[in-house]
């Protein structure tokens, strides 16, 4: 879609937003895992790094993926945008993870 006006969306600090949320972290038991790290390194687009609303997926210095699930909003997006089906996605154990105050 062409734009009449050139416009770039503002940069966003997602971590600042997540700071307002309430979580109970299940330390050492991440509910999302990468199945095969090499698959992520070979993936060109890395849609998870763009589409995840919580910024849990980052490109690391070696061109691979760094996944930190602590801020996860449990939406399920990363599982669906991965063309390689490389996301082992589960809900956290009962009671853990995001605890929405308002929802």
């Amino acid at each position: 879609m062409t734009s009449a006006v050139e416009f770039t969306l503002p940069a966003v600090n997602v971590e600042e937003k997540l700071f307002q949320n309430r979580y109970r972290i299940d330390a050492g038991r991440p509910h999302i895992k990468v199945r095969n790290a090499d698959t992520c390194t070979a993936c060109e687009l890395k849609p998870c790094t763009v589409c995840c609303p919580a910024g849990c997926w980052r490109v690391d210095t070696d061109g691979g993926i760094e996944l930190v699930v602590d801020g996860c909003l449990e939406c399920g997006t990363c599982r669906l945008v991965c063309d390689e089906a490389n996301v082992d996605w589960n809900y956290p154990r009962g009671g853990f993870g995001i605890l929405f105050k308002f929802g």
Binding site: K17, A54, F102
Partner: peptide, 27 residues
């Protein structure tokens, strides 16, 4: 997050939410 920020900063929306305190971000 960028899309949402774009909506919040749009001139038709920004005055409506000016000064409001954000207390939760969800998806």
């Amino acid at each position: 997050g960028q899309l949402l920020e774009g909506l919040k900063q749009h001139p038709a929306v920004a005055p409506l939410i000016d000064g409001a305190e954000m207390k939760e971000y969800s998806a």
